[in-house]
Write a protein that binds this DNA or RNA. Structure first.
Lengths: 352, 352
DNA sequence: GTTTTGGAATCAATCGATTGCACTAAAGAG
DNA sequence: CTCTTTAGTGCAATCGATTGATTCCAAAAC
């Protein structure tokens, strides 16, 4: 008897509740309920079922219950590209919350192209995901494909690159606040002439960061000097080097720098090193993004953390909430507070 | 009648083959077969079925056929981290081939930790993926969890970071050949004193790249000079800068550089710029990896392309092949030929 | 006129888990 | 000693697509 049962199990690829049922001479229904701790099943039966389940290495078949429940327990995610620290971290956050709640994550990349984004949406709908979390591609103007997600009755959560006219829940960080905090931190460290590296004015994040910088100066009674604000397209390392060189050549006498990207901050620090300008004593520096390298460089770069993982977790939680509430969920617009990470590059007062 | 049908469709979330069947007064079986172009169904019926399917926006339910077929049509992928260009590209390749063949891709990240890798495997098995493609985490020593995949009878394909004792198919690039090609290219450009930036000796890729470099020198009758080989842990930009400064200080008189990473090559170029050493006239440079930035910097950085997307495509194709062949597939060990990308940084002879 | 043949479509079972309803037995109420 | 509860299970239908076996029907063969 034992042997036969064993054999049966060996033949089929995976044991099912029927195998457990047969072994205990109960019905599959009972097994199903026992495994889910249904209140109407006795403790004895539950224990027996669980013991057998464990012994024959039973694995719950998601596919079957997905079919029954009309849900796939899959969550679709579209990111512009996996190649950026930020998105990688968001993914991790989403993955974490999702898997804790029995959801799997289907990830696709849009490469920042609308056409790919549209294909991605099709793929996800085709795969019957239970909802979609995405960061909109740069080239996306027409939003019809996103409306299709909503039309299918699926929850849609946008993060980072969002659109407010879509009737979707959103998660972003407060760029203004992050910039304000960074700038005030520099002021508290004793800086009085603080430069700012910014990006294109029409991009929201740079606009908000710039105003956070101005506001912090104003609140501290410091003057705003347009000549201390240097703008570049992408805020790369090279741009930071150029800006810093310009500041030195013009002899602007800066003692602090808040850069809207870690890369440009890093470029500035490199130039300082080459000119024997000490960071942070002569120039205190704060970046933005908390790129992984900021921790390892010398000196460690103070920066604003974008809470990327937290952003992912929150997006996933909102998704779960909307799934649970069904049709009549309320949209949520969440704004995360970025965090100042203090490292050596900005700490003039050595007491950490 | 029309209206009622319409209503019915509106109520259920998704139309099924039953809806099509009812509309045409045929059986669901006929619809199923018609949609798959089964030979025993007449052209007329097929046409009618397809017309209705299209009209009511019917979407094939993967879940249901997955249950029936005992397959999930999902492919599990584990990468160390999404934050690297290389892995992002591999993903794109996998995604492409998979989706063309009706497979969805479930991506997880191991963060280069065994524990996470084990969890990932569990998640994927739990999700009933039809196979696993992965690049092994750095910290992985014990391979039991990977053996479990094989034990479940699922195809296992390894790429980039592979293990040969696992009985899995593998895809890697030929590091030796890439290095050989890069070095010979420099020689052809007229370089006679070629430096090499390398990484830790115990890591295969650096070992192979170093020997490719030596071999190319030898084949051209050039002497190998240990002092021209500089080693660092991670081959970062900073390391490249340091190495280059050292070469200059020692007055090694190099006229060519093959760096085992684009970052370190970039660092060397920065230092050259600062010392008014012209690239490529005074020093021709080739990197390795084809990082995206190599295209945009000034001068454009010649490099070795890792065929990352191709690697992904190939891994996915091997997976498909093994799925198709079932139990008795043959393992495949594939080696891709890396490609030399010629850009300005190495072209002394201006004729491109 | 009867049988054969083959194309076209239907029937019914299946994949594994779930769940509303029915059912049994034992316990408690009156 | 009936009647109602209630705890503990089982039955059977369901989710949507698939497929081997079967039926139906008309045209062709005898």
């Amino acid at each position: 008897m034992q042997t036969i049962a064993q054999n049966t199990i060996m033949l089929r690829s995976q044991p099912t509740i029927h195998d457990i049922a047969k072994e205990l001479n109960v019905s599959p229904s009972t097994v199903s309920r026992a495994l889910k701790d249904h209140p109407r099943i006795s403790k004895r039966t539950k224990a027996a079922v669980k013991e057998v389940a464990h012994r024959i290495n039973y694995k719950h078949n998601n596919i079957a219950s997905a079919l029954r429940a009309g849900k796939s327990y899959m969550l679709g995610v579209i990111i512009p590209t996996a190649n950026r620290t930020f998105f990688g971290n968001v993914l991790r956050g989403i993955e974490q919350v999702a898997s804790q709640n029995g959801y799997n994550v289907l990830i696709t990349q849009s490469n920042d192209l609308v056409e790919t984004e549209i294909k991605n949406i099709d793929t996800l709908l085709q795969a019957h995901v239970d909802g979609v979390i995405l960061s909109i591609a740069k080239s996306t103007q027409n939003l019809d494909h996103l409306k299709r997600v909503k039309a299918s009755g699926l929850p849609l959560v946008l993060f980072d690159r969002i659109n407010e006219n879509l009737g979707a829940s959103t998660v972003v960080i407060d760029d203004y606040q992050g910039a304000y905090t960074a700038t005030r931190h520099l002021i508290e460290q004793g800086c009085r002439r603080i430069a700012h590296f910014t990006g294109p004015k029409h991009i929201n994040i740079y606009k908000y960061r710039l105003s956070g910088y101005r506001e912090a100066l104003a609140d501290a009674g410091l003057p705003f000097d347009q000549e201390l604000v240097l703008q570049s397209q992408d805020l790369r390392l090279e741009d930071g080097r150029r800006h810093m060189q310009e500041l030195l050549e013009k002899g602007m006498g800066v003692d602090g720098l808040f850069a809207a990207s870690d890369y440009s901050a890093m470029g500035a620090i490199q130039v300082c090193k080459e000119h024997s300008i000490s960071v942070p004593s002569d120039l205190a520096v704060v970046g933005f993004m908390n790129e992984p390298f900021t921790e390892f460089v010398e000196p460690g770069l103070s920066t604003i953390d974008q809470c990327s993982e937290e952003m992912g977790r929150l997006a996933a939680e909102i998704f779960l909430e909307q799934i649970e509430k069904g049709k009549d969920y309320t949209l949520r617009q969440s704004v995360l507070m970025p965090k100042l990470i203090q490292r050596t590059s900005s700490l003039k007062n050595k007491i950490v």
